[in-house]
Design a protein around this nucleic acid. Structure first.
Lengths: 203, 203
DNA sequence: TTGCATAATGACTTTAAAGTCATTATAATA
DNA sequence: TATTATAATGACTTTAAAGTCATTATGCAA
């Protein structure tokens, strides 16, 4: 099946542009074809179905990101330098491809199929929670117990994210039934990470 | 419009159970009605449309979580204690409602509409990246520069999450055009948070 | 116990998007 | 240029799920 690489690339890039412009929920095969300036049937000559097309577009996006970061990081020597590079390269990549990752990050399924108004109402709820956390952190900063060089709201947001991520990590590893002790350990880990970071305290 | 509260609650709880069992992508109004043991038309007597039903179910879930955490946290005195309580209460709530949050957390739109095989392939890609980060952290732990009491893979996962969250935070605040300096600042903030935490170093 | 209002039903209609395929266009070869 | 193979087309078919509404059931007040 001698594929016309140019048209394959055209469909891929058109899909990617559409994802950036309208997100996943509004993306249809008709729109992909229209964006690429070809007939819908042609899309199906290069991709088995919508699922395959979306998978290829997403895979490519992550593959490129990973390869670039990996390349840069492996040039660094120490672990600390590696981590620094990893973080800044990852952020750089995200912002270079900002509209793609905006969709990836924000179009979570729990809100993507909802109407604009409902989305806003849920986002407001999330914001209220992170503000709540942010206020606690802010007051600790003002009293001098926490470093004052960070945006307290952002730190609040990150703490919420750490909590969520901890749970995701367990779920992904098929840990659904946690004992009280395991939850306690996780809580302490998150707390210590947030407060003291991961560096070894010199005693 | 004297609503029959019992039936309203019945539809809400049936929807919630369905979300836990099959996720958002497979949830249909027919299934909701079937689960509740009523006719589909009845569902539309209590909820304007599917969007409204989903919004109400999600809102209730988050509202309950927020209220419980808030109640517990406000009983604590210091910021440190508040944060400790917040984290453990949040985790407790998540695990008490584990199948609900599993769907909320894992059914991200970027994979939810994909078939199982595609999901697995994308999850593998994510795993490869977090493993990559985890290995760096692990070697630092082994050499004694990082504390050794944490699961390096989980820390890697959390770092990936911090990076992602940082970007989301900016996007949510309509910051899409970041200067090089802003990205640098963000990178440093994440790095410092991860390494040193948020406590003020005593000089 | 009858009549009226409210609630519930589920077969049916609508909608929207995926996916197909007979037909047409293009390009390569003889 | 004629012949054939390959690529492209878009009107049409299928699918699936949302949403509707004429009909039926239920419960309550007179």
């Amino acid at each position: 099946m001698m594929e016309n690489v140019d048209k394959y690339e055209l469909i891929m890039s058109s899909s990617r542009k559409l994802i950036e412009e309208i997100g996943f929920s509004a993306l249809t095969m008709d729109k992909v074809a229209q964006k690429a300036g070809i007939a819908k049937g042609t899309v199906y000559l290069y991709f088995k179905d919508k699922n395959e097309l979306m998978e290829k577009v997403l895979s490519l996006g992550f593959k490129r990101m990973f390869e670039r970061i990996k390349g840069k990081v492996e040039k660094e020597k120490g672990g600390i330098e590696k981590l620094k590079t990893l973080i800044s390269e990852n952020l750089n990549y995200i912002y270079e491809n900002r509209y793609f990752f905006k969709t990836i990050f924000l179009d979570e399924v729990n809100i993507v199929f909802l109407k604009k108004k409902s989305k806003e109402s849920l986002n407001l709820r999330r914001k209220r929670y992170t503000n709540f956390i942010g206020e606690i952190i802010k007051s600790e900063m003002q009293s001098g117990r926490f470093r004052g060089d960070l945006d307290p709201l952002k730190v609040g947001y990150m703490l919420a994210s750490l909590i969520k991520t901890n749970a995701i990590y367990n779920f992904i590893n098929d840990k659904y039934e946690l004992t009280e002790g395991m939850i306690k350990k996780d809580s302490e880990d998150i707390f210590n990470l947030l407060i003291h970071g991961i560096i070894r305290p010199h005693t």
